[in-house]
Amino acid sequence: MSAPRTTPWPLVALFTAGYLAPYLLPTLVGRLDAHLPVSATQAGAIGSALLLSSATAGFLLASLVERAGPRRLARAGLLLAVIGYGTAALLHAVPAVVAGAVVGGFGSGTVTAVAATRIAAERDPHRASALGLLGVSALAGAVYLTVPHLGPGHGLPPAAIALTALAVWPFTGRLPAAAAVPHARRERAPLPHLGAGLVLVAVMPFWSLAQNALWGVSGRIGLTQARLTEATVGAVFAVALGAGLLGVLGAGALGPRLGRALPVGAGTVLIAGCVVVSASATGLPAFAGGEIAWNACYPIVLSYLIGLAASLDPRGRWAVFVGSASSLGTAAGPLTGSLLSARAGFPAMGAILAAGLLLIAVPMTAVALRAGRRPLPVVEIPVESPAPQTAKAA
């Protein structure tokens, strides 16, 4: 009988703090456009700058987490997130908001790098990453339900991210101050499964770009094309993120029975269809249906991709590289979505993004098929409060 597994709550908390900014991108960009003297394209560019900074942190730090020490690096990232997003929330001058977004984005990327590296070292990395997606989806859903009722202004979304970073700080005390890995081993260990890892790194920017080009303008689609109120759009997003929670729970229940190729390949095809529906919506039923179905599929596929990357290298380097490559696409998403929608309209933008997703589904599925020859970590996501698991861990 195997020993019961404990839940790595510090890593789940870090994952949540690191990924919250991309999840809040529609309301963050939408409020910049509505409450600051910037155009919709400029607001999208600010969102892209935030996420590009996050991706840069991931690429720079992928091989340095063990050397610098997870606790120290996580605290540095959380501090940058508090300072950067706090500045963006409190100040109204556009240059200060941009600078705060860039600093905060670097902090988010640093926190994500630590979380990804440590999760890859877990016995069940897929389970840990899925729990992180559950956490960030739940928190983002709560923010979408709350923010419209707290008044106008651009500062509420970045303030929520800064406060989350503060709340996660106590969890860093349970991280190791430094990894117990000999220096020579850290320096000389080659990257395993080089071909599969490089393919994932190459295609992930395009996969994420397509997702976040739509996600970055979804708020504007709901407000302008579907003619909904901000509260209604926020409620749709909250329900959609709730559907994402259910989707990840379902993926966890199915676990290895699905393998890797089916969730990655068929899931990406389903996402492409949802993108078309959402981008073409002219009323509440189509907008809500597309967003909810899309958000139910997206975290499922993402959880398998994160688990796939983690399985390629137990030291977590491919997980960080793939996550940072994903952030590059995420960074380009808001600006791409703004430019495409401004020049071609929302429906044409959706068709272009869907076509791109169908193309890149092929190499992604091929990598998943080849990696499927190695055992897939079993994913079991317990639906219970953190308290019992914390007691077990203690």
Results as ranks from 00 to 15, higher is better:
L328R: 04
V322Q: 12
N295A: 06
L339Y: 05
W294N: 10
L335W: 12
L339N: 08
A332E: 02
P299C: 02
S338P: 09
P314Q: 11
A325Y: 03
V322D: 01
L312G: 12
G323C: 02
A310Q: 15
Y304N: 06
W294P: 03
N295C: 05
G329M: 06
D313W: 13
L312I: 10
R315V: 00
G333S: 11
F321Q: 06
C297S: 15
L308W: 04
L339D: 03
R343Q: 14
V301E: 01
T330M: 14
A331T: 08
W318P: 03
F321Y: 15
G316Y: 09
A342W: 07
L305R: 04
G337I: 08
L335F: 13
S326H: 14
A296I: 02
R315L: 05
S324G: 13
L312E: 07
S326W: 04
P299Y: 01
V301A: 04
T330D: 01
R315W: 00
I300R: 01
P299V: 02
A296P: 00
G307T: 11
I300G: 01
S326E: 10
F321A: 13
A325L: 10
G316S: 06
P299N: 00
C297L: 15
Y298C: 02
L339S: 06
S341M: 11
A310F: 07
